[in-house]
């Protein structure tokens, strides 16, 4: 594990903690896309099936368990919690997320490293994660005035992706036979989706203004 990978994982962890803080403590999920959260729950559920089949490290196992638990907890809060579900912007969060799932699955059936059950699901989770942020970005664009916690949440998610790219570059130069085209390309696509958001986030931060996205 290198410093970039650790920084990426910690950004990811921190982004989820911010979201849990908002939902659990403030009892609000305003500006948060349930569609994106459901996609993340599906991403983790299909990717971390290997929790039962292979052991990498205690760190990996604990992180996987946290990501699984937190993603389903957030979906539960937004759907069923008496107070939280009332703050959900249902009418604005209209992205047809089901239309992302089928193409990602077909792509995973066609483009993968090995045609095994776990490997195809792992690949599917990579493709789906790459586009899972789309409903959230669309919702931010629609609400325009983004509250601080939601803005920071998306920023740290994007930071996590950026650190992973640095991690891959580092590993490519320091390890032998380290190349993972599928992971890299889906990771690059995913990070590129944040570029526009990053621009406005940094701009609002430098001017110490509230984050506002253009219409």
């Amino acid at each position: 594990m290198n410093i970039f990978r650790l920084a990426g994982d910690m950004s990811h962890l921190f982004s989820i903690l911010l979201l849990l803080l908002k939902i659990h403590t403030i009892k609000s999920c305003a500006g948060v896309s349930l569609k994106t959260q459901e996609l993340y729950a599906l991403v983790f559920a299909t990717r971390y099936l290997d929790i039962f089949t292979g052991y990498i490290s205690l760190y990996n196992t604990l992180m996987k368990m946290f990501f699984l638990w937190s993603s389903f907890t957030i979906v539960w809060y937004m759907r069923y919690h008496n107070v939280v579900r009332r703050s959900y912007d249902k009418d604005q969060d209209t992205f047809r997320h089901y239309f992302l799932i089928l193409p990602c699955f077909i792509l995973a059936l066609l483009v993968h490293e090995k045609f095994t059950f776990l490997e195809v699901l792992w690949t599917f989770s990579l493709y789906l994660e790459a586009v899972a942020i789309l409903p959230q970005l669309v919702l931010l664009q629609r609400t325009r005035n983004v509250d601080n916690l939601t803005g920071h949440y998306v920023f740290f998610l994007g930071a996590y992706r950026s650190f992973y790219i640095l991690n891959w570059i580092y590993r490519y130069f320091t390890e032998q036979n380290y190349y993972k085209w599928i992971t890299w390309i889906s990771g690059l696509v995913q990070t590129a989706l944040y570029a526009d958001f990053f621009y406005y986030y940094v701009k609002s931060w430098r001017n110490s203004e509230r984050l506002q996205l253009p219409a």
């Binding site: 994982d9 990811h12 290997d50 990498i56 990996n60 996987k64 390890e175 036979n177 380290y178």
Partner: peptide, 10 residues
């Protein structure tokens, strides 16, 4: 030790 067999990233 080869890294391509197992997925060691999250």
């Amino acid at each position: 030790q080869k890294s391509e067999e197992k997925h060691d990233e999250l």
